[in-house]
């Protein structure tokens, strides 16, 4: 049974979960999407713990609202939409909190990048600093542009998929990606020139 489930596509798994409440199908979908979602949400909000909580909430929402998924849509875009909405809400909440908070260093805390490749310590430090700079630059890009740039250039989604996730037209998606990249290019000028 498990072997059969592993061979199923995302859409078939969610159908199985919807029709028969098969928890194994749900677990398999969680396994498939937890890391891509984590990467997407982390790049978007810039905090590992918050990102982990958002992904977990996404999976909880998926569990509770499995029937709201309609089979004509791709499961990946549906789950990315849930995660994106939660991430956006979290960013808004943090922005409001920051407005009234005396400590405004919330955004700058703990940019942790986990690099599993085995490289020398000094090289690793260089790399982590380099990645930290990129992440900081990414965080300075406006959220509406940042989201689509991450989905396109980091997650590798197609324009159509991004349009579906963000509920925007393809033209708007392309223009936002373009503007986001332009902002990022300005911010990272020193990095790729040096």
């Amino acid at each position: 049974m498990n072997k059969n489930l592993r061979e199923l596509t995302d859409e078939e798994l969610i159908k199985e979960f919807q029709d028969h409440d098969t928890i194994e199908a749900y677990e398999l979908l969680v396994k498939r999407f937890k890391d891509p979602l984590m990467n997407y949400v982390y790049r978007f909000v810039g905090n590992r713990d918050v990102a982990s909580d958002i992904v977990q909430d996404t999976m909880i929402k998926f569990y509770l609202n499995k029937d709201s998924y309609q089979s004509f849509a791709k499961f990946s875009t549906w789950i990315y939409t849930i995660a994106g909405n939660l991430a956006r809400n979290e960013l808004k909440r943090r922005k409001r909190r920051k407005l009234f908070s005396l400590n405004n260093n919330d955004d700058e805390q703990n940019i942790q990048i986990e690099d599993k490749s085995t490289i020398l310590p000094d090289r690793a430090t260089d790399n982590s600093l380099y990645h930290e700079k990129i992440q900081k630059a990414l965080k300075k890009v406006k959220p509406v542009y940042r989201e689509v740039v991450i989905l396109r250039d980091i997650q590798g989604l197609s324009y159509e998929e991004i349009a579906e996730v963000t509920k925007l037209s393809i033209g708007t998606v392309k223009s936002r990606i373009n503007r986001g990249r332009k902002q990022l290019q300005k911010l990272l000028k020193n990095i790729y020139q040096g």
């Binding site: 677990e27 969680v30 984590m38 982990s52 992904v55 990645h131 991450i150 250039d153 790729y192």
Partner: peptide, 25 residues
Amino acid sequence: YKNIIDILKSLPKVDTPDNFEFNLM
């Protein structure tokens, strides 16, 4: 924007913590 795209693609993938699934279930 090839440079930017390459830089973004070079970013390491961030994974969920090990106990993620356990906590979720």
